[in-house]
Simulated assay, not measured.
Amino acid sequence: MTTDVTATGVGTIRSGFLGGGFMAQVHSRAARAAGASTAVLASSSLERAFTAAQDLGIDRAASDIAELLAEDVDIVHVCTPNATHAALALAVIEAGVHVICEKPLATTVADAQRLADAAEDRGVVAAVPFVYRYHPMVREARARVAAGEIGELITVDCGYLQDWMLLPGDDDWRVTSADGGPSRAFADIGSHLCDLLEFVAGERIVRLTARTRRVYEERGNRPVTNEDAVSILVEMSSGAIGTLLVSQMAAGRKNALTLELHGAQASIRFDQERPEELWVGQREGSQHLFRDPQTAHPGVARFSVVPAGHAQGYQDAFNGFVADAYAAIRGETPDGLPTFADGVRAAQLTEAVLLAAREERWVDTAPTG
């Protein structure tokens, strides 16, 4: 039996959650913002699930995934450690339930593709939270690039820098391949960067070479089995070339996801730590553009949920993503919703980065499908 925690919420979609950590907090807030009933949560034990459900205001606690699925939920949010994603997401899909699975979707390309195929076969909505797509100024950048306003793409200069693993005593379950997978820095945050680059540029990374670095061989009395930082050279399908730097050991950088595209006519830059603006560079001068639904490109205004001058941020972007996933459940086709196909792409790029670093060579990454 499940355990009552709070009064039943009101909503047309009943949402379940696997995991009770930080990401479950973000997912459950977004589900409520989308008008769903946050119905049930399961964690590694019933006791932990009960505590998390109380903390997050979720109606009931379940002991495991089977008990959660018995609650007649419409969608399950998988917010558990990386290595568990594939098995849990597959169980949800096989039950005929829609799913949002945290990234990395799986720790191998084969498992990620298996999930995407299963979701297609069962006809369920299957989404991955590449939520930075949902910053309004990311959509503005994408619209301007698509409209040809920066001209032919020449180079890209991108990065994703954090500092939460800077010190020798900093530890996390992600440092072991058993829980986090064979890649940490790239799979965790570099995947966001590459997704955003391909999304905004409207083209694919077709070749890359990479170098990885592991600074400390041990954290928390455990051997570290994946990388702290990655530098990548990329070639885009248009012939544009670029650099990507990904690190979880950049002192003072908390969540510095930056995307700068240089075209033949103009450059454009987005900085996730300053999400309300875009920098547009031209030879005769540069300018900062600020979010304003009144002047946004067609289709972009819907991502602005408050008037100009009222700051939006990460949770707003996450809310937009979940709202689109739930809209897809209702039969709509939201533009730019990241699906399991995008999760497969991230897994392909992760394997390519690790291979390129290991063998010190270029690796082709053009999609085959």
Rank of each mutant, 00 (worst) to 15 (best):
L354M: 15
H27V: 09
E71W: 06
D179P: 04
A366C: 11
A112S: 14
S63K: 14
L245F: 12
R222D: 10
A323Y: 02
T339S: 11
P275A: 06
W164P: 03
F50S: 11
V125D: 02
V78W: 00
C158L: 15
N82D: 10
V363D: 02
D172N: 15
L18M: 12
A116M: 08
F318K: 01
L197T: 00
T350K: 03
T8K: 13
F130H: 09
W173L: 12
A323E: 10
D4E: 11
K103A: 11
D188C: 13
G309L: 10
A296H: 00
H262W: 15
I93M: 07
T155W: 12
L197E: 00
Q248Y: 02
G148N: 08
D172L: 04
P182I: 04
F17N: 02
G331C: 10
T258F: 06
R283I: 13
E71K: 09
F22Q: 04
D72V: 12
E217H: 10
E149P: 02
V145W: 00
S237V: 02
A42Y: 02
I58N: 03
N82M: 09
A30Y: 04
D4F: 11
R358I: 01
S183C: 05
H98D: 13
P136I: 05
G313S: 14
H98F: 07
R142G: 00
S183N: 09
W164M: 12
I93K: 00
Q272L: 11
P223G: 07
L167Q: 14
A66V: 09
G35E: 08
A31K: 02
T212S: 14
G181E: 02
L208V: 07
D335F: 08
R133H: 15
E198M: 07
A352T: 11
H77L: 04
C194L: 15
M23C: 05
I154F: 02
A240L: 05
C101S: 14
Q315F: 06
S44W: 03
S15F: 08
L196M: 12
D171F: 13
G336R: 10
V206S: 04
A106F: 09
L41Q: 04
V10C: 07
T80G: 08
R213C: 08
Q25D: 13
V131A: 11
V344P: 01
V78M: 06
E284V: 12
E351C: 08
T295E: 12
I241K: 12
G343Y: 01
M165C: 09
A95I: 04
A146N: 10
P367N: 14
H297F: 05
F303C: 09
V306L: 15
H262V: 13
R283V: 13
T108E: 09
T12F: 13
A61K: 08
L257M: 10
A308D: 09
A301S: 14
L337Y: 06
L208A: 07
